[in-house]
Structure formats: structure tokens, C-alpha cells
Design a protein around this nucleic acid. Structure first.
Lengths: 242, 242
DNA sequence: AATTTCAACATGTTTAAACAAATTTAGGGG
DNA sequence: CCCCTAAATTTGTTTAAACATGTTGAAATT
């Protein structure tokens, strides 16, 4: 439950922007005004504005003001954004999620898997293969490696629903950082077996290493998406060369 | 040239992490210690640490300390990260860049292009088609739309070198925010003409809208990459649901 | 009328201080 | 030795204030 003031202000402004209380290119109220509106210090307002800027919602301009540069997106396919479970993404995309467990195994990392996944050598892992349906169409094939030590009670039943929900709700886990790599790879035998690839010979692949609040990597996942239902979104801010 | 204190500290710590002055999973010096080391206030240190955290370099843990979670990456293909020109990316990837202009034209946005690119209707644009070579192999096909009003002096010669360098160095332009979308699309006739696709029938496509410091969108680009030489990297931070 | 100057206002950076919340450490008592 | 407690340490949030830097517009000057 984030009850921090800056977070409240951030969410409030974010919603106002999304519901177009400010039109595209319009200036937001000045920091001074917001301070009075929200009854807080300037730093707190600035923190909220900084988050909106890193979301690509606004652009602060020294001496001028803060400009709204949010444009609603027309999403036609499955959109990946921040760290989300499949369940959360599906709901946000207004699609019906379903998961089928293809494999549920345990293993210990050898040299090769260790280097690929980032887990130390000799670590006990769960290995899962999961087929993800959206509106009853199989679109995503997940290969998951989870750190067994942190979730010894993991079962196929949990994995069929939502592992993230289990970790956060049941185990009181906090998920924080995820390092992701997007590539395009050739279709494999397994892909073709479970997904209707039409005649696509490529997959959109996201590999991710995810860390908990203690900075421990607890997950390595390769998520293989059918190309025609995949979209990844991102906002980047330019850092001056130096 | 960022001469801000927090930026200096940020860069210093970043380099120390990259050169493994701190080993993986090790705690950084406490904020208190860093304050004394750098001779500044705690807020300034914290700002530098916050940036490192958003880069996925460190993980702050309340009551415990700040943990180094940086792992050097093994990059075998062309890696896309923040906002960078092709020239900058090529140098960072240690590859020899070359650009061939395929088209250089001017146009005015109609209904269709306006909706697709995000430029207002009736805007004067430059349209460019550029083929990008890395180590003399054609790998990327760019379709650029630039706001003519902000760079009336643009020429094919400039476009062959680096438009970003021209904008920043010559025009004193500041590039700030870029909203990007990653998708996988079918190969087109044009792709096949200029790139050696082997028998890939897909392209990795990045479309981006880029804004200057005044919050004005000055660029819309579709960048089509050959799949076997494409990699996109990203660090995401989980926000608590609420 | 055009230009310069300056005051007002906007965001950007930095410091200082206080308190909150989580964790670790050190001691003391059993 | 174990357990509990309290103190010390660490990061998280908020406020206040001062100064820097960039922009704007109005007043004063030319």
C-alpha cells in the first residue's frame, strides 16, 4: 500500500492526464500552484512530476513550465510494459487469460544453465514450461526457472493460476527489478507444436532476470510470443553525452 | 555538459560498478559514508543512487544498505538501449557504421500519415529512407519523418552522416524523450531488396516518436532490423499495485 | 517604434534537518 | 546458550530555505 504523499499526487495527476483534464501540449499548473493545491512542499510535488516525466507523460521545461505530452495509445495487440504477470497483462489488455502447464520439473544448475540464466552454479531450481492462451488462442510459450529455495511450496496448481500472485500475496514477497532483453528468434519444434504459427518462422522473445527486494534473483524466464500478437512499449530519456 | 554534483557522483559510482570495484551482491558504502567521501549532502548522494537503481545497477534495501546487482552483459548482436543515434550505437557496439540514403523527399501530412506518426494534419515533413550498414553488412532499414520547420537546412549529406549530431551540435537542439514500440513484422518487398534476409520472413521493428526540450515532437521513425542482429535491452521496476 | 533593462516567475540544484520504518548489533537476563 | 530489549545503523519521506538558471512580459530608455 503506497500511502506516500508523492505517490498519491503522482497517481492523481496521472489519472487527470489520462482522462484528458489537460489537453495535449498544454502546460500543467506550476509547481507553486500544485504545492497549494495539494498542501505539501515543493519537493514532494517535484518528485511526483519527475515520475510522470520518466513515464513520458510530461516534459518539464526550465523557465517555462511542465508540458503534457501524453497521447492515448491505440493498442491492437498484446502490449508488454512494466513488470507484470501474465494475468495482470491480460486483464489490462482486456483479454481472457488461460494457462496450461506443459512441464513442471526440478533441476540443479550446471555450467551451461548457470551462465545463461545468471543463477550461481549448483542452484536448485524449478523449471516450468507454460502455454499461455489469450481469448482461447495459444499465443505465448514460457520457459521459467524459479529459485526453489525461496518458494519450496510451489505447485503446478499455483503455476497454472499466477506465480506472482502467490509470491506477493501468500509469501509476502516483494518483486522489484527486472532486466529484460528483447530478441527475434527462429521458431523451434516446440513452438510449432503448440502455437499456430501460420507461416511465420520467427518468434518475439523476451528473456528476463527478475530480482526481489533483497536483490536476489529469483527468476529467469524466456517468454516466446507469436509475432502477430506482440507489442513492447518503452519510454527513453536522452542523457547528454559526457 | 552536465556539471551537476549528483551527476558527477552518479557517473563515478556507475564506473566503479562497471569496473567491478564492487562485486556482485556486495553492499555499497552507506549513504552516510558517501556523503563524507564526496563532501556533499545526503540528498545529493541519494539522487545519484536513485539513478543507478533505475538503471538496474543497484537495489536499495531499507535498513540494510544498497546492493550491487550489476552483471556485465555478453553482447553478440546490435544492442539498442537508451536514445542513441545510429552512429553512437555503432561505436558503443564496436562496429563500423555506414549509411546509404535511398530516398530524400518532402511531404505534407495527410489524414493517414498524421494518425500514424502523431504529427498534426498538414505538417511539412522530410521523409527519408536510409539503409544502415554495420561492418559493411546492410542490417537496418530506416524510414524517418522529420519536422521540416525545425530543421529547414537538412540535406542528404547531413542525413548520411548523423542527423542527431547536426541537431545537437549545429542547431543547439536538445533531444529528450522518445516513446518507442517494438514489434515483429513480416518482411516487405523493400526489406528483401536491400537486406540479405537468408530465409527469415520477419523483421524486428522499432517505431519511435521523439521530442525536443520544448516538448515538440520532431521525429517519427520506423527502424527495421534484421532479426539475427537485433537486441533490445530494458530495466523495469515493479510498482506496487494500488 | 524599436530596443534594452529589469522584475516576476518558471524549473533546476543543493543543503539542512527532522522524523519514520526496517534491520542489525550489542547487552543483559534468564 | 538462548531470548528479549534497546540502541545504533540504514534507507525512506517530508519540509524548509536558499540560490542558480532560463523565460516572459512590462516598464523604461533610446
Amino acid at each position: 500500500m503506497p500511502k506516500a504523499k508523492y505517490d498519491t499526487i503522482y497517481r492523481d495527476l496521472k489519472e487527470k492526464i489520462e482522462t484528458e483534464c489537460f489537453s495535449y501540449q498544454e502546460l500543467l499548473p506550476s509547481e507553486h500552484t500544485l504545492v497549494q493545491e495539494y498542501g505539501c512542499s515543493r519537493n514532494t510535488v517535484r518528485r511526483a512530476l519527475a515520475e510522470l516525466a520518466s513515464d513520458g507523460y510530461v516534459q518539464p521545461m526550465q523557465g517555462k513550465g511542465v508540458r503534457n505530452i501524453f497521447q492515448p495509445i491505440t493498442q491492437t495487440s498484446f502490449t508488454v510494459g512494466g513488470i507484470e504477470s501474465f494475468l495482470e497483462s491480460a486483464l489490462r489488455n482486456h483479454q481472457k487469460p488461460r494457462t496450461k502447464i506443459l512441464q513442471f520439473a526440478e533441476l540443479e544448475t550446471g555450467e551451461k544453465i548457470s551462465r545463461r540464466t545468471g543463477f550461481p552454479l549448483g542452484t536448485q531450481l524449478f523449471y516450468l514450461q507454460r502455454l499461455r492462451y489469450l481469448d482461447d488462442v495459444p499465443l505465448i510459450l514460457d520457459h521459467n526457472y524459479f529459485l526453489k529455495e525461496l518458494m519450496p511450496g510451489l505447485t503446478p496448481e499455483i503455476a497454472e493460476h499466477s506465480i506472482y500472485e502467490y509470491l506477493e500475496q501468500t509469501l509476502g514477497f516483494t518483486i522489484t527489478t527486472s532486466k529484460r532483453t528483447m530478441t527475434v528468434e527462429r521458431v523451434t519444434q516446440v513452438d510449432e507444436t503448440y502455437l499456430d504459427m501460420n507461416d511465420y518462422n520467427c518468434m518475439a522473445v523476451i528473456t528476463s532476470q527478475t530480482f526481489n527486494a533483497d536483490g536476489i534473483q529469483f527468476e529467469y524466464t524466456q517468454s516466446r510470443h507469436r509475432p502477430d500478437h506482440f507489442q513492447f512499449q518503452d519510454v527513453a530519456v536522452r542523457k547528454k553525452p559526457g
